[in-house]
Design a protein around this nucleic acid. Structure first.
Lengths: 149, 149
DNA sequence: GTGCGTGCAAACGGTTTGCATGCTT
DNA sequence: AAGCATGCAAACCGTTTGCACGCAC
């Protein structure tokens, strides 16, 4: 897994390495899409990324963004976020974290919660199969939405 | 919230009450869709429910299933489950529970985990806004998929 | 009888795909 | 030079919507 909790330069260097390791060609589009995704903290949709990038890359096409994001997801460079909305949201693969979702504005915020990993799981879970990662999603109403009446 | 951890009869009675309370008409389609959803433990898609119900209700239409499920979701009689897949999945509103997702076969299983609600949240979460429910999703590989090589 | 809910068919919108061209390797 | 990645446009597919009829109230 790619650790991007670092400066942007290191981050991009790590991305370039990751591409080479996986035999992925390092194109301008991939680099810029990754850079934009890693810079974003709002778990953008493909379309949101497209709009942001279009300003500096006028020839970029939306389907390249889609194709690139699914390539990233396939190679573990980004994640598709589980959502109830119709548009898929993405995040650069980051340190392990959980999500706070505002029921009003649908914003998704990250947070850390190490304790969750040490809390013993119910027995039935162990019986179900091989356990991978635990992800917590907390639904609530964010400060901004609460105060805006 | 509707508690359906009971016999089917009580469950249906509770559903009928819930419809009346909300001013929703109690149609044959709604009743059968609810019955099938409550009987299903696999978090079916609208299409899956449609196929199952079509056997006994040949005139049922897929868009009625969609419309009914979103009515249920709107009135708190069912939930749309957060997923990374393209088709939406649903569950009858049940006691609070969490999800085990198999990365291979995409099956979703429910499990209980009361302890999670008493585990103190990180401070930053409290600062974010008003907290609602905590939902855990554990990704892993279920027994069947592990043994099938 | 009133008007909400259903069935049908057509529209919609996000995402994917086929194909010719371009750019990384 | 070889072939993967991109851009364009068209197809795809899950879901939604407009309309007329039917059924719960």
């Amino acid at each position: 897994m790619l650790d991007i909790s670092q400066s942007t330069n290191e981050l991009i260097a790590a991305f370039e390495r990751a591409c080479r390791d996986r035999g992925l060609r390092l194109t301008h589009q991939r680099l810029e899409i990754y850079r934009e995704l890693a810079r974003s903290t709002d778990h953008p949709t493909a379309e949101a990324l497209y709009k942001r990038l279009r300003r500096t890359m006028p020839t970029l096409s939306l389907d390249t963004v889609y194709r690139t994001l699914s390539t990233f997801a396939e190679y573990g460079l980004a994640n598709k976020v589980e959502t109830v909305e119709s548009q898929a949201r993405f995040e650069a693969v980051n340190n392990r974290h959980h999500h706070l979702v505002c029921s009003e504005c649908k914003t998704i915020m990250d947070f850390q919660w190490q304790e969750i990993d040490t809390l013993p799981l119910p027995q039935e879970v162990g019986e179900w199969g091989a356990i991978g990662t635990r992800s917590v999603v907390i639904h609530g109403i964010c400060r901004q939405c609460r105060h805006k009446t």
